[in-house]
Design a protein around this nucleic acid. Structure first.
Lengths: 210, 210
DNA sequence: GTCTATAACGTGATAGAC
DNA sequence: GTCTATCACGTTATAGAC
């Protein structure tokens, strides 16, 4: 029912049309390579309206950036702080949740990576990752598992980097995989779906390796 | 002896000064966000010289891009095709080689990822990844290991994605790690050095998990 | 709120003197 | 080969009519 492009949607506000279009274009091309004309055209509106609703290209970008980042992190924080799930369940739900999420919007990881490079300061003020992760249920459970000997790697940062990396990296490297090996888009999707089952198994094996 | 910035180097050709500066600026900012003036300034030469030696910004970029890509892939192809090493040794040498390489030039992975997004066609003509990898010694050895039951995951693509991802992802996510967790640069380097020993162990555990 | 027209500016590239 | 000066163009942003 609401599955169509913005252009054919009748009852969305102009402001939201612009934001939707900005998301599409910024995700695909990044800030520097995006022209405000691209956004206006994608939104099906006049160029001047962009500056009427948002003051500038930079301001519009910042809004998209912050929304994207916080939207992306939100599920992570919630899942890591769930007291009702153990470590294995947390791994499984994060893998499943994020592979689905990124499959729907595959450009997001590369977008975040490229744009944070040119603006590293923006996020660390806006997103209090540190506090949330350091006092999370996950960290507590991780330390317990290390003490019990279920996990051999004492540093939870390796765990998180590996988990997120195994999920996200194929999407970041997608053009290289597709292009380098002449893979069809459908085959790539299958590969990703396979990983949904494999990554939790891999993670468990890795972190208890000796 | 030759450890200084280009600016103070006496006896490098102007052409090489420009290429060196272009590498630095393109790596850091990407094609779209780079101004030819930035490169000229970094090289300590006049802007007009850039167009004298290289026809345009795009042409200069293409040279840097191709040199970077082929330089980055070269070691991989060689190591994967070495008939004298087994799978474990290949893993170890690739991890060690690439962590050292990227530690020296940490911006390369993000540079490749971001710039290939806007120019996916460029590389797949220039780099015959497919042929080289499909007929590699590595593939042969991998299939043998699967048949012997040493490896449970039948698809070598997962192996390669995981291996490269575990190596490269921390560098790509570096601003997030450093910023998000308020890590010092030195601590990050230590983390990376730890991974040099850990990744081979992890990979072995992952790929023989059941 | 939305449009057209245009100002203001930045950037890639070149002409031409040395 | 190297420089200064400048052109030509694309892009962001705004003024002002509707």
């Amino acid at each position: 029912m609401e599955n169509n492009k913005e252009k054919t949607e009748p009852d969305v506000s102009t402001e939201d049309k612009i934001k939707g279009a900005a998301r599409i274009v910024f995700y695909k091309k990044g800030f520097a390579a995006t022209r405000t004309r691209d956004i206006a055209e994608e939104a099906g509106i006049n160029l001047a309206l962009l500056n009427y609703y948002f003051r500038s290209k930079a301001k519009l970008f910042e809004i998209i950036m912050i929304e994207t980042l916080s939207g992306f992190m939100k599920s992570m924080v919630i899942l890591l702080n769930d007291p009702k799930t153990d470590l294995d369940e947390k791994t499984g739900s994060i893998v499943s949740k994020y592979i689905d999420l990124i499959t729907k919007e595959p450009e997001i990881p590369t977008f975040i990576v490229t744009e944070i490079r040119s603006n590293p300061g923006l996020l660390l003020e806006k997103l209090p990752i540190k506090q949330i992760i350091q006092h999370s249920v996950f960290i507590k459970q991780y330390k317990e598992a290390v003490e019990k000997g279920d996990i051999t790697e004492p540093n939870p940062l390796h765990f998180l980097i590996n988990l997120i990396g195994l999920i996200v990296f194929p999407f970041i490297a997608k053009p290289l995989i597709i292009g380098g090996i002449e893979m069809k888009a459908q085959e790539f999707d299958n590969l990703i779906q396979e990983r949904k089952k494999l990554i939790p198994v891999w993670i468990k094996a890795m972190m208890s390796a000796r």
